[in-house]
C-alpha cells in the first residue's frame, strides 16, 4: 500500500475491529486519524482495548476487520522502521549485557542514536557492562525506555510507560520522553494514570469496551466540559 493523494495522516485506522476466539470484541469498529507532531494519550480503563489496539499497530496482532495505515503503509517491515514501541512489560533477553542490547538496537534500527543511549544510561548511572538479569525491574524498564527513546522514529508507541513505577521514576520517564522525541514525531501513549501526564498531552483518545468514544484535543475537552482530563475520565468511568 502506497501513499495516496489525499492528506496522509501518520496513523489512519478505518473500521478497525479485533475479536479474540471465544471472547468479546476487544476493539470494535474504531476509525481514527492521528497527525504528526502530537502527543496523544490513549486512555481507558483496564480491558478497554488499549493494548490490543497497540499490538495491532505494531503488527503483533492481525485485525479481524478494518485497515491500519501508518505513514501510508500497512503494519510490516516498512512501518517497523519508523515505529518505536515500548511494550508494557520487560522483553529484553536476561542474559545480555546493557551494551549488547544497545549494539543490537544500533544494528537493526538505522535511526538509533547510540550516543544518546549512552548519555541517558550515564545520567541514570546504569553500567553498560551490567547484565540485565542483575538489574531491578524498574531499572530494566528504564533501559527499555532509553532504547525506545534513543531512536529518531516518526511514531513512538508507549504502552503503559508509567504504570507500576514510583512517582520519582514517573517524573524521569516523562522528562525522558519530552527531552528525546523529535517535535515532528508523534507519541501515542497509553495509560490509565492520567494525572501525571495530562499536562504533556495534545490530544486524547478514550476507549471504552473497544470503542473510541472520544477523540479530541485536550483544550477542547477542558473548554467544553469545564474540567481536567482526569476529572472527565473519572466522570465517564465512575462506578
Amino acid at each position: 500500500m502506497t501513499n495516496t493523494n489525499e492528506t496522509v495522516s501518520l496513523v489512519r485506522l478505518k473500521n478497525l475491529s479485533k475479536k479474540y476466539p471465544a471472547g468479546p470484541m476487544a476493539v470494535n469498529d474504531v476509525s481514527l486519524r492521528l497527525e504528526s507532531g502530537k502527543i496523544i494519550g490513549l486512555l481507558g480503563p483496564n480491558g478497554s482495548g488499549k493494548t490490543t489496539l497497540i499490538k495491532m499497530l505494531n503488527g503483533l496482532l492481525k485485525p479481524s476487520s478494518g485497515t491500519i495505515l501508518i505513514d501510508g503503509n500497512r503494519p510490516g517491515e516498512v512501518t517497523k522502521k519508523i515505529v518505536s514501541y515500548l511494550p508494557e512489560h520487560t522483553y529484553l533477553p536476561e542474559n545480555m549485557k546493557v551494551k549488547d542490547v544497545i549494539e543490537y538496537f544500533a544494528d537493526f534500527y538505522a535511526d538509533f542514536k547510540t550516543e544518546r543511549a549512552y548519555e541517558m544510561l550515564s545520567s541514570l548511572q546504569i553500567g553498560q557492562n551490567s547484565y540485565l538479569k542483575t538489574l531491578s525491574k524498574g531499572t530494566k524498564e528504564k533501559v527499555q525506555l532509553i532504547l525506545v527513546m534513543s531512536r529518531d522514529a516518526k511514531l513512538f508507541i508507549l504502552d503503559e510507560p508509567i504504570a507500576g513505577v514510583d512517582p520519582a521514576a514517573r517524573d524521569y520517564i516523562i522528562k525522558t520522553i519530552l527531552a528525546n522525541y523529535n517535535e515532528n514525531a508523534t507519541i501515542l501513549l497509553s495509560t490509565h494514570i492520567i494525572t501525571d501526564i495530562e499536562n504533556i498531552l495534545d490530544e486524547v483518545v478514550i476507549l471504552e469496551n473497544g470503542k473510541a468514544i472520544v477523540h479530541s484535543t485536550v483544550e477542547e475537552i477542558r473548554e467544553q466540559k469545564g474540567k481536567s482530563i482526569d476529572a472527565y475520565f473519572r466522570e465517564v468511568f465512575s462506578c
Binding site: 503483533l60 510490516g76 517497523k80 522483553y91 529484553l92 533477553p93
Partner: peptide, 17 residues
C-alpha cells in the same frame, strides 16, 4: 521464547519479515 514468549515483542517488531 524469542518468537512467542516475552522476547517475541522484541523479535517480532524488528524491521524485517
Amino acid at each position: 521464547n524469542s518468537m512467542y514468549g516475552h522476547q517475541g515483542y522484541l523479535t517480532n517488531t524488528l524491521p524485517t519479515t
